[in-house]
Amino acid sequence: MSSAAPERIFAGLGLRLLSVGLLASMQALVKLAEARGASLPETMFFRQACAVPLVLAWIAAGPGLASIRTRRIGAHLTRTIVGLMGMVCTFGAVLLLPLAEAMTLQFTVPIFATILSALVLREPTGRHRWAAVVLGFAGVLIVAQPGSGAFPLSGALVGLLAALLVAVIAILLRQIGRTEPAATTVFWFSLLSLPPLGIVYLFNLQPHDPATWAILVTVGLVGGLGQLAITASVRFAPVATVVPMDYSSLIWGIAYGWLFFGTLPAEGIWIGAPVIIASGLYIVYREHVLQRRDTDRAIGD
Rank of each mutant, 00 (worst) to 15 (best):
100 A>I: 05
85 M>T: 02
46 F>T: 02
126 G>N: 01
74 G>T: 09
95 L>D: 02
134 V>W: 02
78 T>G: 14
106 Q>S: 11
55 V>C: 04
49 A>N: 09
75 A>G: 14
54 L>F: 15
66 A>V: 15
102 A>D: 14
89 C>Q: 06
37 G>S: 08
49 A>V: 13
44 M>D: 08
20 V>I: 14
98 P>F: 07
45 F>V: 11
67 S>C: 13
97 L>D: 10
102 A>G: 12
45 F>M: 13
56 L>K: 08
28 A>W: 03
24 A>K: 04
121 L>A: 15
56 L>N: 10
133 V>I: 03
102 A>E: 11
106 Q>R: 07
111 I>F: 00
97 L>R: 02
76 H>Y: 07
130 W>M: 10
20 V>H: 04
21 G>N: 12
71 R>G: 13
64 G>V: 12
95 L>Y: 03
54 L>W: 14
53 P>W: 15
48 Q>I: 09
37 G>W: 08
45 F>R: 10
18 L>C: 14
132 A>M: 09
88 V>D: 01
69 R>V: 01
128 H>F: 01
126 G>M: 00
57 A>T: 13
34 E>N: 13
54 L>S: 14
89 C>Y: 10
78 T>Q: 12
90 T>S: 04
44 M>Y: 01
126 G>Y: 01
74 G>D: 12
131 A>I: 02
67 S>T: 15
93 A>L: 10
102 A>V: 06
131 A>M: 01
127 R>C: 07
57 A>K: 12
67 S>I: 14
29 L>H: 15
131 A>Q: 01
80 T>H: 04
107 F>L: 13
17 L>R: 03
58 W>M: 13
65 L>C: 09
72 R>W: 13
81 I>T: 15
47 R>D: 01
76 H>D: 14
66 A>R: 15
48 Q>W: 02
68 I>D: 13
126 G>I: 00
71 R>I: 00
50 C>K: 06
90 T>P: 00
83 G>S: 05
68 I>S: 14
19 S>F: 11
24 A>V: 11
63 P>M: 00
95 L>V: 06
35 A>W: 03
130 W>F: 09
36 R>D: 11
100 A>C: 06
91 F>H: 09
95 L>T: 04
24 A>H: 08
104 T>D: 11
111 I>N: 04
80 T>V: 06
64 G>E: 11
68 I>G: 12
87 M>T: 11
18 L>S: 13
64 G>H: 06
60 A>W: 06
64 G>M: 05
43 T>E: 13
115 I>G: 06
66 A>E: 15
31 K>Q: 03
66 A>S: 15
117 S>W: 05
55 V>T: 05
56 L>F: 12
81 I>H: 02
90 T>W: 10
60 A>E: 08
50 C>P: 11
41 P>A: 06
125 T>K: 00
57 A>N: 10
40 L>G: 05
124 P>K: 08
116 L>A: 11
87 M>K: 03
34 E>L: 08
100 A>G: 09
131 A>H: 00
116 L>P: 09
79 R>V: 12
83 G>L: 02
130 W>G: 03
128 H>Q: 01
47 R>N: 08
63 P>V: 07
46 F>Q: 09
28 A>F: 03
75 A>Q: 09
93 A>E: 04
